[in-house]
């Protein structure tokens, strides 16, 4: 299995069974994971929220699953991902895939370094049970096990 997907996450970037009152708060948590792990700054969190305000909820790419991200910028310190699972789902206004239970925050420094990990995540998402598996996680180590 692709080691680069597991290495995208760190204990600080994984927030399990958290509460969010709105899609903005849910992306805010994904941003919190990125900032706590030293992957990106708070400005990147704002950029991820702004991207949805401008482009709509197309980041909800699979049932219950949002891939929050913004463009590479100086707000990104290194490429990486955060994971948020929500105790209660939130609505993104994404007809086909609402409500959202899981948000992955993606920070990229360019168009290349994160691609292998992202495509490995895409392989996982092709399995409809993958989001449910993420929802059952209670420890960071379980995530690494799931991705390995």
């Amino acid at each position: 299995m692709d080691a680069s997907l597991a290495t995208a996450f760190s204990p600080d970037s994984v927030l399990l069974q958290r509460s969010a009152g709105s899609w903005r708060e849910a992306i805010g948590l994904a941003g919190e994971g990125l900032t706590t792990a030293g992957i990106a700054t708070e400005g990147y969190t704002a950029a991820m929220i702004h991207a949805v305000e401008v482009n709509g909820p197309y980041i909800v790419i699979a049932p219950g699953f949002a891939l929050a991200h913004a463009r590479p910028s100086e707000e990104v310190l290194r490429w990486g991902m955060s994971l948020v699972t929500l105790a209660e789902p939130v609505q993104f206004g994404a007809d086909a895939h609402d409500p959202v239970y899981v948000v992955v925050g993606l920070a990229a420094v360019d168009k290349d370094q994160h691609i292998a990990a992202l495509m490995a995540l895409g392989e996982k998402l092709a399995d409809p049970e993958f989001v449910n598996s993420l929802l059952k996680l209670s420890r960071f180590d379980d995530l690494i096990h799931l991705l390995s």
């Binding site: 401008v54 482009n55 991200h69 463009r71 990229a108 994160h114 998402l125």
Partner: peptide, 15 residues
């Protein structure tokens, strides 16, 4: 094509 060109569009290309 996606808004940022680094996330959704990559998965769309893959599929």
């Amino acid at each position: 094509v996606c808004g940022e060109g680094i996330g959704t569009s990559v998965l769309l290309k893959m599929n």
